[in-house]
């Protein structure tokens, strides 16, 4: 019982710390929110302009919703990915990495706190973007299966937590270049996961890689729910697959993190700066 209470306090330390970081770096937060919002609008306007670009009659409403779903889901998943992958990077920037790593708190607790924060923060941030972007376009989601979409999104979050842990290893291994490597990993996921286009238009070899990205299944399933009203029952296999894959990726992430942490301790890489 004592251990559980102690670990819960430890997990809350990371939640509270991240809330404080948002409060103290509110300027960054605002800039980042505006960037995401403008990016979502810019991408969605491509759908609105396709009829003019191609000179042919198109279902513009469908295109707008198609792109909006992609951009919002990516916004949410990338927040989860970055929040977790930056759990080490923040410590390096602030110079607190040694203090946090010598504290009697398990890496699992560290992760649980970071993940809970990331999911709540990701949902709130995406909702803000959705409300603002929706005011620019006439969206018709009357036939959408919203509960199914939420279920799918939560299931997809599990995998992104695992990918975030794997990416968090990079700043641990490479104090100077780790964060840039994390950005590159996110960019590759964006390319291959069918965020703005169907993965079927990618070259064959990229489609093979796309099949390994959990975001591919989340985004495809979300579009089926929101654009075609696919039933929750039909999504069950995808949801179970995503949860199973997520658990496997998290286990792999934790194991990798543990090994890399040991390596960092042997090689003296838990330095302050980077």
């Amino acid at each position: 019982m004592n251990t559980l209470v102690r670990e819960m306090r430890g997990a809350f330390a990371f939640i509270e710390r991240n809330i404080n970081l948002i409060k103290r770096y509110w300027g960054w937060e605002l800039v980042w929110l505006i960037y995401s919002l403008v990016n979502s609008l810019a991408v969605t306007y491509i759908g609105a302009g396709m009829e003019r670009i191609s000179g042919q009659a198109l279902d513009t409403q469908y295109l707008i919703t198609y792109l909006l779903v992609g951009t919002l889901i990516w916004s949410y998943l990338s927040v989860i990915f970055y929040s977790i992958s930056e759990m080490i990077a923040w410590e390096r920037w602030e110079g607190t990495i040694e203090y946090t790593f010598m504290a009697p708190v398990s890496r699992l607790t560290h992760l649980v706190g970071t993940t809970l924060f990331a999911i709540v923060y990701g949902v709130l941030r995406t909702l803000v973007i959705l409300v603002i972007v929706a005011s620019f376009f006439r969206l018709d989601l009357s036939g959408a299966n919203i509960p199914g979409a939420v279920l799918l999104l939560l299931a997809g979050s599990v995998s992104f937590v695992g990918l975030g842990i794997l990416a968090a290893v990079l700043p641990l291994l490479y104090p100077e270049r780790g964060v840039q490597m994390t950005n590159a990993a996110a960019a590759i996921l964006l390319l291959i996961s069918g965020v703005y286009y169907p993965v079927e238009i990618l070259p064959g070899w990229l489609q093979v890689i796309a099949s390994a990205s959990p975001a591919t299944y989340v985004i495809k399933g979300m579009r089926a729910c929101l654009l075609h009203g696919e039933s929750t029952r039909a999504l069950i296999s995808t949801v179970l697959f995503l949860i199973g894959a997520g658990i496997a990726v998290i286990a792999m992430g934790l194991l990798t993190f543990h090994r890399v942490e040991r390596y960092a301790k042997r090689a003296g890489r838990l330095k302050r700066s980077g």
Partner: peptide
């Protein structure tokens, strides 16, 4: 106080 609160929580202090 915020820094010390973070430390206290990491060490499981009430």
């Amino acid at each position: 106080l915020e820094n010390l609160t973070y430390a206290a929580r990491l060490y499981g202090m009430p």
